[in-house]
Design a protein around this nucleic acid. Structure first.
Lengths: 213, 213
DNA sequence: GTTTTTGCACTGACCAGTCAGTTCAAAAAG
DNA sequence: CTTTTTGAACTGACTGGTCAGTGCAAAAAC
């Protein structure tokens, strides 16, 4: 995706070049902001890491905040698509709703393994208040959680889940479970395999924690 | 602060006033940093919110970072104590390990309800890298998670939990479950009662999600 | 008399955003 | 095929402002 950048290609000029620059800026920004936070990250740093002049940042994005917001939108878009895909695939394969949740847990882990910095940054900003990009975060959160809530609701309807479960809270809790477990995995035991982590979470998800019954 | 005495250890007077000022500064800082993040929060703001002169901040703390670090230590100390208490009480009452976990979930919720800003701020900083207070965060995280891990381990030993569970990961996941559910609760449905939220999480914890038996 | 707080002026570093100027590939003209 | 023009993309020095931290004399608290 980012490689190459040999010109040619494209029908009408320059478009490709710009896209490549934006991509480089996203990648630079995501790492730096994950490490240091938004305010502590300077535009100069982002430009330098992307191998681009500062002016280029402002040629491509209206401001530092706008760059960040577009980054958020882009990233959560990827996650949401992936979760939806997982749920759909399970349904088509005739799997149960628990299977769907399990597949989504895995999709979440895959995402976090692939984009750890983005995840870090997202978590760090999500519950802040008074920030300009607050609304962007909300919208984007809504989308992702809605997928989980959808599966839970369907499960309640078809009798697979108890009618007494609190869909909203349970969805939050599940997201939190995966999020924190995955971040800890990446931060403190990155050598472990995804399957390994997934197995542990599966067990928890399916209530197979208590002893041999 | 440099060498020697200066620490005349005023038994009655001085201690209290200073302590009160520090407390005011903690409270001001915790709110502001939770809302805006560390870097975006200025020392002038903290002083103003605490109703104190800027010089006082520097009389009481060596720097902005030090103020923040001591804040972290102080806050997590409270949480850890509370979790330990919950586990202990359950044990003394002869409850099972699941009961202990459940009690700890509740203790966590109580803490977050009481100190939502601190929790926000903590989550926002925990997985960052390259920060000066990184080590403080780690130590402090270790303490809290260790309490949960302890209970899980005891549960495995006495046969209440499966031997196959991954203690470390499961502990992370449980912490994440409570953390995210509680933050969402505070942020998006603050009108709900603690009992309500606790009930929903209990259900999840005890695997009573799947249908009517 | 000692500790703590105040108020305020000051400094030096740092940083978001700007803008006049440069680059260069492709289109138009010759 | 060669030369000229065009304009989108990019550059980096510069500006105006902000902020952590200092210094200190005087007041307040103890």
């Amino acid at each position: 995706m980012t490689i190459g950048t040999m010109e040619s290609s494209t029908t009408s000029g320059g478009r490709t070049r710009r896209e490549a620059t934006r991509q480089k800026l996203y990648e630079a920004a995501v790492t730096l902001i994950a490490e240091q936070g938004f305010s502590a990250t300077t535009v100069d740093e982002i430009a330098e890491r992307a191998g681009v002049a500062k002016g280029t940042v402002y040629y491509n994005f209206a401001s530092k905040s706008v760059l960040f917001e577009e980054l958020l939108r882009h990233g959560v878009g990827l996650l949401t698509a992936s979760l939806r895909q997982a749920a759909e695939d399970t349904a088509q394969r005739g799997g149960s709703k628990v299977d769907a949740l399990d597949a989504m847990v895995r999709a979440g882990l895959v995402f976090i393994e692939r984009y750890p910095s983005f995840t870090q940054l997202y978590v760090a900003e999500l519950w802040r208040t008074n920030r300009t990009w607050q609304s962007t975060l909300m919208v984007v959160r809504e989308q992702a959680v809605a997928v989980v809530e959808g599966v839970l609701r369907e499960g309640v309807q078809n009798g697979e889940f108890s009618e007494e479960i609190d869909v909203q809270l349970t969805a939050s809790a599940l997201v939190g479970m995966v999020l924190v477990a995955a971040l800890d995995w990446q931060a403190f035991q990155p050598e472990r395999s995804l399957d390994d982590v997934h197995a542990a979470l599966s067990r928890l998800l399916q209530g197979r924690v208590s002893g041999p019954r």
